[in-house]
Amino acid sequence: MAENVRDEMAEKAQFYPGETKIAENRRKYMDPTQELKRLREIPDEDIVRLLGHREPGEEYPSVHPPLEEMEEPECPIRELVEPTEGAKAGDRIRYIQFTDSVYFAPIHPYIRARMYMWRYRGVDTGTLSGRQIIEVRERDLEKISKELLETEIFDPARTGVRGATVHGHSLRLDENGLMFDALRRYRLNEETGEVEYVKDQVGVELDEPIPVGKPADEDELKERTTIYRIDGVPYREDEELIQVVQRIHELRTLAGYRPDEAEGK
């Protein structure tokens, strides 16, 4: 349905301004018509273990009966909005939260938020500097998490799955290139060259490590990243983006102060 609505929109969604590779990546990740490139396979069971909300194979705990068994009141919104599979089943709302390093992580907080809002339904997302959470009905969350972990927007060294004690995004990298994690939820397996989680997202130890793939090299990260940096693509060079932000600021200022002057600007 969301796709139809977009098709009927008078204006074509531009997703994000900017004339650099970084802006292009931002647009790409937000644009739901662009398929994210799959870089690794993580078994469904491992994703469930990493999330730590239920045991693999366990029934989804529910907070209400399936919608079809509930006598819901007549409501035009209910008729208009198709429930997600998790909502239909009455699943709990659970979360996955990421920390993205400032050192060329593939995606980072506000771009994540906008990507989530463009691509997924039934999500509630919160954005901070050091972490970015998405809360969803549990079975929907597992599907979304799989995409978030297996595709190009995840890098095992520069992206962390962290429910608590999240700091690391702004710290220098460890000697092996991994982002700092005070709870040491993951480690670099020297033999396989892969990063593997030894704790779930809140730091509870796992019975078996979960491999999440090899870290990308620096050049590849610079190609995939949404982060402007002075040692990559400097923000200063994206004049279009800066001008758009300045314009938004000017219009907001005028709208509060002299709305008449904002007309036509």
């Binding site: 402007y228 923000y235 932000v245 600021h249 509060g256 102060y257």
Partner: peptide
């Protein structure tokens, strides 16, 4: 927009709407 992150949820709040009341 540059760094793609700012503060925590509540930190950013007043800065999103501050321009409108600054004058």
């Amino acid at each position: 927009e540059g760094h793609g992150r700012l503060g925590f949820y509540g930190y950013d709040l007043q800065d999103q709407c501050g321009a409108a009341n600054s004058l």
